[in-house]
Simulated assay, not measured.
Amino acid sequence: MIGVYFESWACTWTDKAEESALAQIETPIDVVFLSFVRPDCTYVKSQGTWVGTGMDFALDFQVVRKAIQILKSKGIKVMLAVGGATYSFDTFHHKSVAELMYDLELDGLDIDWEPVNGIADALKFGPILEQAKQYCISGQLLSAAVFANGAMAQKEGDLYRGVNVAGLQSHGHLLDMINIMAYDGGKQLDVIASYLSFHQYKAKKMVGFQVGKQGWGDALLTLDDVVQVCSMIEDGDGCFVWAYFKQGTPSVEQVVETAAAFLDNHEEEPVGVPCPHCGKGLFITK
C-alpha cells in the first residue's frame, strides 16, 4: 500500500472535477490523505463549504467531492487528515469532523496528533483515537500519523521519544494504519529501526518518506534510501510520501514508482527499479 498526503492549499483552482490535480492521481497510489482539517472544526451536516474546517482548497466543495468520487472509482481510498503541525487537538469537535467526512463520502479519518508539549501530553493520544473511531462507520478506516521515535523507550531530555506509546498500548487496536513520520530527524535517524519499533502493533505500518528539503535536519532522501527501506518493509505494510505537491529530487512520482516496484512484488520475484544514478532499469531481488 502506498499513500500520499495531499496539501489542500497547493491545489490550483478549476471548476471541473475531472481536471483537478486531485482527480488526476493514479495508482500505484492506494490512499490519499486530504490535509488538514482543524480538530476544532465547526462544520455542520450538509454545510457544503470549507468555512470553519481549516481546509485551504481553492476548489469549490462540490468539485472536491466529485474529484473524490473519481479517485474512488479507480480503487483509491481517500481519507481526511486531521491536525498536523499547525492545528492542535486542544479542542476536538469530533462530531463536526465526522460530518465533514460523511458529506465528502470519504473512506476514513487520519489523526495527525503533534502535541507541542510532547511526552507531557502522552496520555491524551488514546482518548483522541477513541473519540475518532466512534464515527468511523460502514467500513471507514482510522489511521494515525506518529513520530518516528514515538514508539521507542522514553529518553530524558527528548520531548517526543515514546510520545505515542501510551496511546498505542491503550487504543492501538482501533487503528487500521499507523503512518510513521520517518523524516525530519536528520541524517542520524534510523528509519528501519523506527519502523521496527512499531512492530508489536497490529495495524498496517506505513513508512513515511519526505522529498526535497526536510522541515528539520540535514537529511536528503535518495532513491537508494527508498530501495533500502522498502526492501525491509514486511508484506501487508507500505509507505507514504509527504507530500504530493512538494518539490525535490527524487520527485514524489519517482519515490512512488520505486516503492511500488518493491511493495507490489513477491519475495521470490526480481524487482525492477530505476537506477538512481543512470535512470535505467535495475533488477534487484527483494
Rank of each mutant, 00 (worst) to 15 (best):
E156S: 13
C239T: 04
T91H: 11
V207M: 00
K204Q: 12
G54I: 09
I192H: 02
E19C: 08
L159N: 06
V211F: 03
R161D: 02
I111T: 03
G54H: 01
K204N: 06
G83Y: 00
A151L: 06
L71S: 05
D190K: 04
P115V: 02
M101E: 03
L189I: 14
A259V: 04
Q62W: 10
A259I: 02
C239R: 02
P115N: 02
K66D: 04
D112Y: 12
M101S: 07
E267M: 07
G75C: 10
I128L: 03
F61S: 10
Q169L: 03
L106N: 14
H93V: 06
D103C: 10
Q134Y: 01
E269L: 10
M152W: 07
M206G: 00
D103T: 06
R161H: 07
V37I: 13
W9P: 12
D237R: 00
T14G: 14
F61R: 01
G54F: 03
T249Q: 15
V165E: 04
A67I: 02
M177F: 06
Y183M: 10
I119Q: 04
P115W: 10
F33S: 13
E114W: 04
L220E: 05
G215Q: 09
L220C: 11
E105M: 13
I25D: 11
T249Y: 09
C230H: 01
D103R: 02
N117C: 11
L34G: 12
I192M: 03
P274C: 15
E18G: 00
G281K: 14
V226Y: 09
G126S: 05
P127L: 05
Q214P: 04
M79G: 02
L22V: 00
V191D: 01
D264E: 08
T14K: 11
W242G: 04
E18A: 08
K133I: 14
M177R: 01
C278I: 10
T27Y: 12
S138Y: 06
S88W: 03
C278Q: 11
T12P: 10
Q47D: 05
G75K: 01
G281L: 04
S35K: 10
T86W: 12
Y195T: 02
E234K: 12
K246H: 11
A182P: 01
I284V: 15
F57N: 11
L123T: 15
P250Q: 12
H171K: 09
H171L: 05
M1I: 06
A122I: 14
P276F: 14
T258R: 03
L59C: 07
A23E: 13
S251M: 09
D158E: 15
E268A: 05
A166W: 08
E130I: 07
V255F: 09
